[in-house]
């Protein structure tokens, strides 16, 4: 069955999207070739790997391992070639006509601003601030778990860029408060959530599996946590949200939309899919049926539907 393109259209932070599905940051996304591969999956936008001002080496392998519960555990260590790669990524995305969101990382406000400016100067579509990587010292959640830090980083970036700023927040006790601070500081949207800090021990060798010992858990095991966070944040602020965490079928995507998300990111499922193109089109078809089932003409009408009384 052909997709009803009109019904699936959505927008997020002012970015027009032909459907709600984009990739989650961290899956490929730091070379021209990666952008091309991701685009071939049929996503409505591409989110790059987190880019830091200068090239950053990752951890020694093992950096990613699949778990028996269907999740993935990773500690790649924010490996990336540095901000100089942004021009090439933007150029490639423009060639294939797909919006490109630059995931930005840094150890302090200045570093976030430095990469964000590079993204803006190269006319990237938007910026997603990674305030939530759970496994790299000095980055991510070490900054983003404090709502005041979230405020100052978002404020610093939003005040020097015109392209939309999206804040990606991770699981923390004060995530709802952090979401509010990000919006107050000028974020046009929120990506909720990042991977959740976790670890795995091999019981035969009695050793932690990841070289970094701790990593970020992704995939189906974190989906209900992410739905909870999206639901709570939407309830509090009615903000523009990208749901992220454990989407592997249309039901998971629909759940995020019902909780309050206008767009959805897929990471683990896309990485493990034998045929990523099929996965994307199956999720979209399922979403379309779901919209029809409820008599919604566009995604927008379904956003936050679980909050209605």
């Amino acid at each position: 069955m052909a997709l009803n393109r009109l019904a699936l259209m959505t927008s997020l932070a002012g970015i027009e999207l032909r459907h709600p599905l984009m990739n989650a940051s961290g899956f490929l996304g730091y070379t021209r070739e990666h952008v091309h591969r991701l685009a071939s999956y049929g996503l409505s936008a591409i989110v790059t790997k987190t880019i830091t001002p200068y090239a950053k080496e990752g951890y020694e392998p093992p950096i990613i391992v699949a778990l028996r519960n269907g999740g993935l555990l990773n500690a790649v260590g924010l490996e990336n070639p540095g901000k100089k790669c942004i021009a090439e990524l933007v150029e490639e995305a423009r060639k294939i006509n797909v919006p490109l969101i630059i995931s930005v990382g840094g150890r302090n406000e200045e570093e976030f601003v430095e990469v964000a400016i590079e993204a803006e100067e190269n006319s990237a579509t938007a910026i997603e601030l990674n305030l939530s990587c759970p496994h790299t010292k000095g980055y991510g959640l070490e900054i983003g778990s404090d709502p005041n830090n979230v405020f100052s980083v978002v404020k610093a970036v939003a005040s020097v860029t015109r392209i939309p700023v999206i804040a990606k927040l991770g699981l923390s006790d004060r995530v709802v408060e952090s979401a509010g601070k990000a919006l107050e500081a000028g974020a046009k949207g929120l990506t909720l959530i990042n991977t959740v800090k976790a670890m795995a021990i091999d019981v035969h060798t009695l050793k932690p599996i990841l070289t970094n010992i701790f990593g970020g858990l992704s995939g189906p095991p974190i989906h209900p946590i992410a739905v909870r966070v999206v639901y709570e944040v939407f309830k509090e602020y009615r903000s523009e949200i990208i749901g992220c965490g454990g989407v592997s079928s249309w039901i998971d995507a629909a759940e995020f939309i019902a909780a309050g998300a206008k767009a959805v990111q897929v990471g683990t499922a896309l990485a493990l899919a034998n045929n990523p193109q099929d996965l994307v089109s199956n999720i979209l078809q399922g979403l379309q049926h779901w919209l029809e089932l409820h008599g919604y003409k566009v995604v927008e009408e379904a956003v936050g539907s679980a909050h209605r009384v």
């Binding site: 490929l28 996304g29 070739e33 990666h34 591969r37 990752g58 950096i63 990613i64 990773n74 790649v76």
Partner: peptide, 19 residues
């Protein structure tokens, strides 16, 4: 090859979509 799973992107083939 680092992760071996098509995720980390270390082993991309230049000027190709392939890993």
């Amino acid at each position: 090859v680092k992760c071996g799973m098509g995720i980390c992107g270390s082993c991309y083939i230049r000027e190709s979509e392939k890993l």
